[in-house]
Design a protein around this nucleic acid. Structure first.
Lengths: 229, 229
DNA sequence: ACTGAAAAACTAGCATACAAGTTATTGACA
DNA sequence: TGTCAATAACTTGTATGCTAGTTTTTCAGT
């Protein structure tokens, strides 16, 4: 497991959460692998309590499974879960895009353009690692403008299912395409064209579609059996 | 505070959660009131640990606010929060209604009709307390048919903000209206009419609109100041 | 070598003790 | 009576011990 640096005034619980999430999305804690409060606590230099609290929180979004008195595991990849995360994001982002057309002030739009400027800069300097971060910031800003920050937070909670498979995909998303999308979206927001904004957002989110079958073929042991309906 | 009966194999944490939620929505734990892990634990006959875990979970949906080393409080009513909960529900329910038109089998539709049958029975026998429960079951069934159960669970998490003000409203929703809505919705689902199902669902959810100003006037001390944007 | 039961080594849930920080109280002094 | 500092009484965060349940291991008996 990769142990991150603990931030200045970060609580033990938040630290444990951050470390666990990082290791889960990067597959250092493999899907299906068993995890133990004791071991994790020892590795992070904490006691069981904050680690346990973090695990409980992760189990709420079904990325960790706790079997009382037996064991806890990192959840296997369940495409039903991934689909729910994507579905929720699609619906909320599109609705937010429309709302932003109504609500955005000139200052708001300037903030969005600033996001995009940083993304462009990032593209040219080939630090493509952090583009995802800037991408997230752009979308979060949209939710802020629409006054739907809590919805964004909840969404991010289950988004970890999606993020985990995103990292496994072979064909990475073309980054310049993403930034170009952002520019068009902001432009339609500026012209207050709700239906266009929604349509562009829908198209934009579709770029993140991933090759489920390909990943499943390469890592069959990471996948849960499809449940019967 | 109202202490509920502990269920057979219910964990301490789940029990604490249930008791806390119940007391929060029924205002026995008033908005803004201070709560202490120690006191709550004593009242429920538990130790701090499970109570604390429950409080952490409630703080995730911002219905409880934890100020480390200072105090914890029941959140004041924040209409921004209520709006987010309603927004999320509206969007997801409408999208799910469309999905159900595609996915519902005859068996699924029979399940929905059974829900409605029980609601009708309930209407006639004037046990109107539990109609909300049956109403919830109907909507949850829709999410199950659409294979979006986790989305439903997340939604229910912040729905507590909405439920709390719902109980404070003077003019109660006309119950027979709700059941009639359900019947029309199922009927459009049966005919696979997506746009009609969405429209009916939107109309249906609008029946839950509440008189914000009226409640605020009666219970000003329960409300948070409006934040500056 | 195989079977099966006892025992040891795990698991997470819960209780409790302590630490670190904040607030309320007390009481001396002006 | 009023001020202010010491202190006591809270708060939540974390560590640790104990309980109850499950799994694994051990080892006797065949």
């Amino acid at each position: 497991m990769r142990i991150l640096e603990r931030l200045p005034r970060e609580s033990g619980r938040d630290y444990a959460l951050r470390v666990l999430k990082d290791n889960i999305v990067h597959l250092d804690l493999a899907p299906g692998s068993q995890i133990s409060e004791n071991e994790l606590a020892a590795e992070m230099g904490l006691s069981r309590t904050p680690v346990r609290e973090a695990l409980i929180e992760l189990s709420r979004v079904r990325i960790v499974e706790i079997y009382p008195q037996k064991k806890s595991t990192v959840a296997l990849i369940d495409y039903a879960m991934v689909d729910e995360a994507r579905f929720m994001r699609n619906q909320m982002e599109c609705a937010v895009a429309e709302l932003v057309c109504e609500l955005a002030t000139e200052t708001d739009i300037a903030r969005l353009r600033e996001c995009i400027r940083m993304q462009r800069f990032n593209l040219e300097s080939y630090y493509s690692d952090s583009l995802m971060e800037l991408d997230n910031r752009f979308h979060e800003t949209l939710f802020q403008i629409a006054r739907k920050q809590e919805v964004y937070r909840l969404m991010q909670g289950i988004a970890i299912h999606f993020d985990r498979v995103r990292g496994m995909a072979l064909d990475t998303v073309k980054n310049h395409r993403i930034v170009a999308d952002h520019e068009m979206i902001v432009s339609t927001i500026g012209s207050r064209n709700k239906s266009a904004a929604r349509a562009l957002m829908e198209q934009h989110l579709n770029r993140y579609r991933i090759d489920e079958a390909g990943i499943r073929a390469r890592y069959p042991q990471y996948f849960a059996e499809k449940k019967q309906a």
